[in-house]
Simulated scan of single mutants.
Amino acid sequence: MQPKETTTIDYGNEESDFYLHHVARASPFERNNHYHGTYEVYYQLSGRRHYFIKDSAYAVAPGDLVFINKHDVHKTSMLGPPQHERVVMNFSDAFLGTDHPLFRPELLRIFTRDNHLYRLKPQEQMFVEQLFRKLTDEVKLQEDGFELSIRLLVTQLLLFVLRLKHADAPVTDDPLSPTHRRIAEIVKYINANYDDKLPLPELSERFDMSPFYLSRTFKKVTGFTVVGYQNLTRVREAQALLARTDAKVTDISAQVGFEQFAHFNRTFKKITGTNPTRYRKWNG
Rank of each mutant, 00 (worst) to 15 (best):
H22M: 04
F67W: 08
T76R: 09
H263T: 12
T267H: 10
V235H: 00
A169N: 01
L214S: 09
F52I: 02
Y118N: 09
E5A: 10
H180K: 06
G145Y: 08
F218G: 02
Y279A: 04
G47Q: 01
R206D: 03
G37R: 11
V256G: 03
D93C: 08
Q2G: 02
E143C: 06
E5T: 10
N32H: 11
E202I: 14
Q260Y: 12
P62T: 04
L141M: 13
M1N: 07
T7Y: 01
K188S: 15
L198V: 04
P82I: 03
T277D: 07
Y58G: 00
T112Y: 12
D144K: 10
D10P: 01
G12V: 08
L135A: 02
T272H: 02
L203I: 05
P276R: 06
D173G: 09
S92H: 07
L79V: 00
Q260E: 13
E202M: 13
L65W: 13
N191K: 14
D246I: 04
M78F: 03
Y51I: 07
K140T: 10
Y19I: 01
Q44E: 14
Y194N: 03
D72I: 02
T7W: 04
F52N: 02
I9E: 10
A238M: 09
K54R: 13
H34T: 00
K54L: 08
L65T: 03
D99T: 13
L241R: 15
Q260V: 12
T136A: 15
R278I: 13
Y42H: 14
R48Y: 09
V66S: 02
V128K: 10
A240E: 12
P199H: 08
G63C: 06
D17Q: 02
T272Y: 06
R216T: 14
Q2N: 12
K75R: 15
F264H: 07
H166D: 15
N90E: 10
